[in-house]
Amino acid sequence: MLAVIEKVEGGYVARYDRPLKHSVEKVWAALTENDKLAKWMSNLQVEELRKGGTIKFDMKDGSGSFIDMEILDFQEYSVLEYEWGKDRVRFELYPKPDGCLLVLKEFISTLTDHTSKDLSGWHVCMDVLSALLEGRYMEFPKGEWEKWHEKYKLAVKEMQIIEYDS
C-alpha cells in the first residue's frame, strides 16, 4: 500500500503503516542494532543510540564519506526520529495483541524531483525489513523500487498540483 502523503504546516508528511506479526522488541532491534539494520538499510549505522546521538549515513559512493545525522527523538522500544538531509524520519512502534504496528513518517519540507525516489526507497526498505523479520534475507529489489517509484512520482505530482491550486 502506498504511503499517505499529506500537506501539513511547514511542508508534508508521508506515512507508512506496517502491521507486523512481531514483538516491539524484535522490530526495535531491527531498527537500532547495526548487525540487523545493515540487512535492510545498509547505508545506516547507529553510533550513539540516544536523543542527541548520531546515526551515520554511508554514501557508498566509493569515497568513504559519511553524513552524521542527529537523533532528534528517542524513546526506547517506542520512538526513533532522526535527521534525513533537510528533513527528518520518525519510526513509531505500537504494541498489538498479535505483534505491533510500525509507523514510519518522513517529514518533508519541500517536494522535489528527489522526493519520489526517497518515498519509493522507504517503501521498498519496509518490504525488505518485513522479509528480514520473517527470517528471509532479501537484496534490495531494484525492479520493485522502479515500480513503486512510478507510483510515488504520480502521488508527489498530485500533491504539487493541489499545492499549486491552493
Rank of each mutant, 00 (worst) to 15 (best):
N34H: 07
S120I: 09
G11I: 10
F66G: 08
L132G: 06
E163C: 00
M126R: 03
K153C: 12
Y82I: 00
E146D: 11
V4M: 11
F91E: 01
T32S: 15
L20C: 05
V128F: 03
A131D: 14
L119F: 04
D68W: 00
P97S: 14
W28D: 00
E48V: 11
K151F: 08
S109G: 07
L20T: 04
D127N: 10
Y137G: 04
L93N: 02
E150D: 06
Y164M: 04
I5Y: 09
R15I: 11
L129R: 09
V4Q: 14
Y164C: 03
G143D: 13
L133Q: 06
G53L: 02
K39M: 12
D118T: 14
L2Y: 04
R15N: 02
V89I: 10
E83Q: 15
R50F: 01
L119D: 03
L49C: 06
G64P: 06
L132A: 11
V46H: 08
D68S: 11
S130M: 08
C100Y: 06
K153Q: 15
K153N: 12
L31G: 05
Y77S: 01
M69H: 10
E92H: 00
K36A: 10
H149W: 15
L132R: 05
D58F: 03
E9M: 06
A155N: 04
L132F: 13
P97Q: 12
S63R: 10
S116D: 14
M138E: 13
K157D: 14
D58R: 09
K151G: 02
A155D: 12
D58E: 04
M69F: 09
I162V: 04
L129T: 02
P97M: 09
K151M: 06
G10V: 07
D73P: 01
I5F: 12
S65M: 06
W122P: 01
D127L: 04
D98T: 03
A30P: 01
A3Q: 05
Y16Q: 06
V79P: 02
I71K: 07
